[in-house]
Nucleic acid binder design. Structure first.
Lengths: 339, 339
DNA sequence: GTAGATTTTGACAACGATGTCAAAATTTGA
DNA sequence: TCAAATTTTGACATCGTTGTCAAAATCTAC
């Protein structure tokens, strides 16, 4: 197919290609009447600049990379969507790159994207945003990058996050306010730093209420539905008779819910359950799960904003930017008054 | 950051840039010893070709577009992942483009991707792969494209799909074999062509068994959890006392399941439920939902294969390729013997 | 050993935009 | 009105690769 080039537009508008370029990029120093004329021709010919030529010439790619561990998860999907929409608004495109740190050769893939595609910036999702070796690849390549919900915040990286600790604390407080005193907690995997912060929040709220946490009711899961199923069984066998279980993500909360159902335990009448994430599944269950909404899409859009902000781009990756977004406690049916 | 160019490699290997280019692209006509020498230098310098320069020069972008309606759905995630992995194997990158046909300006966005990024090919997911206007944009642009599970198969488009009709027929037969005679069916939205084929399969199996379908037990949902919830209520009020309900996707099946639970109806003892899709949620519920596994990732990989197949690329989009993949009936706990 | 066929190699010109910088046009100030 | 200051414009080189095509090297057959 014949493509319309900047020359075609220039010829038809009776100006030089450079002038057309100026109009397209909204630069100064173009007389209004010429600007209008050029824009008219652009519209007429339906001209679109060739992204490759532009990138080659300007050494900007208008491409952001989203590096993510498990692109199939609902979490990933929401993050991606948030990033995608904002990219579009900003005239950028998004390239999604799955990174499996367990697999040999991940570094090569990441390098390929950075060097081959000349990414203008990178968004790195949890949990891989906590991997020092991975971050080092970006730092060494001099690519501006923003971490989503990282555990530590390296000087050289931007970051967008929410207060997991505080959110977990609020959720725990919510349970305490409902009269619960025997509360079990299911931690997430060590690889997810957020899960540690959630645990801290839980402990803080309990301590504040003067309740000694029963360590036998603090189990570690792996964020999977199955582990919720299994650990729920363990918790419900406990002699201390829990009246509430707080799982540090929704999939596990769902597992606990199903386990309770199998055992004929009424939720929330006999047992309150709450989760964390506001995953799609938390709404699919019955009763729907009381949980914490993470601003997933918003974190991603914010990351795009940071990376595409002209001011930020100018000063380079030195002034890594940081931003904390708000979470929200979503009350649904799975948690109720203590029996 | 200083980038390594093909010239650097050429200089160090003592050959011309063109020869390096030949080695990199695996072309013929390079003496083995030179090939090896060049490859060694490439490894030493950690050279990666600049994708933009390459694209600009060769008028190939090594970029495929995935055009999708709702990128947040689990379906989308699986399709995307399948495509992503295969793209990587083939040295391609994937750009995901959400397309909202309801929104003014979608055509402009699609055109932007095609023209601006010079996509080498496009994968179009359901349900938008059934929109003639959208397809026309690709056809006119002369972009090879493969439709995933489309309803009709235009001559100018490739397609990858599964046999929805047959799958639904098998599922229905499975219910019939379990002794069910009063079976309700929840259809999908008209916009999803697959849902019509699933309905046909259901009717075919019922007809074959000599059972007259009760039209009042054939309701139309919109593939959402909520509609399963509501229509489940309607079906369970029916005087004909259904012993099984076949929802044409898992989210709706889940809705029916929850409704049954709320009403104290035991699944599968009193009511069998089955779905379609093998969505993540179908495993999260209890009992887990008996369903049809769609080869989502496989369809996407196959689409990538078609688009990146050199033979296909050479002969152009004229020889649109077609491929049907196998589904699988997944027996879980939500369907059992008729009471 | 030589002519001719074949393979291997490299020089050079694209690809389509933007950056640089100097020329042309316009405005300003006296 | 003219010189100087300022704004607007375009010529040209450049980004890093690949396509084209002719030159150089090698092989084949007599």
């Amino acid at each position: 197919m014949k493509m319309v080039t900047i020359k075609d537009v220039a010829a038809r508008a009776g100006v030089s290609p450079k002038t057309v370029s100026r109009v397209i990029n909204g630069e100064d120093h173009v007389r209004p009447e010429i600007r209008d004329a050029v824009q008219k021709v652009v519209a007429e010919l339906n001209y679109r600049p060739n992204a490759f030529a532009r990138s080659l010439s300007s050494s900007r790619s208008y491409l952001l990379g989203l590096f993510i561990d498990d692109p199939v998860s609902g979490y990933a999907a929401e993050v991606q969507h948030g990033a995608l929409l904002r990219c579009r608004e900003r005239g950028y495109h998004l390239v999604v790159e799955p990174v499996d740190l367990q697999r040999e050769g991940w570094e090569g893939h990441v390098r390929d994207s950075i060097s081959g595609l000349r990414l203008d910036g990178a968004i790195i999702a949890p949990p891989i945003c906590d991997d020092a070796e991975l971050l080092d690849v970006f730092v060494r390549a001099g690519i501006p990058h923003v971490l989503i919900a990282p555990s530590t915040q390296p000087e050289t990286s931007g970051a967008v996050w929410m207060d997991d600790r505080r959110a977990a604390q609020e959720m725990t407080q919510y349970l305490l306010d409902l009269g619960h005193r025997q509360v079990g907690f299911i931690r997430g995997p060590l690889s997810h730093s957020a899960s540690a912060r959630r645990e801290q929040g839980f402990r803080a709220a309990m301590a504040e209420a003067g309740i000694v946490v029963d360590e036998s009711a603090m189990l570690r899961g792996d964020f999977s539905f199955r582990s919720g199923l299994e650990l729920g069984d363990v918790l419900l066998e406990l002699p201390c008779a829990l009246t509430a279980i707080f799982a540090s993500n929704d999939d596990m909360a769902l597992g606990v819910l199903i386990t309770a159902m199998k055992r004929g335990i009424a939720v929330p009448e006999q047992l309150s359950i709450c989760g964390f994430d506001d995953a799609a599944t938390s709404r699919a269950a019955w009763p729907q799960i009381t949980t914490i909404r993470q601003p997933k899409a918003e974190m991603a859009s914010a990351a795009v904003d940071i990376l595409t902000d002209p001011a930020f781009r100018k000063q380079g990756a030195d002034h890594a930017q940081r931003l904390m977004l708000k979470h929200e406690l979503i009350v649904r049916g799975s948690a109720g008054k203590a029996p």
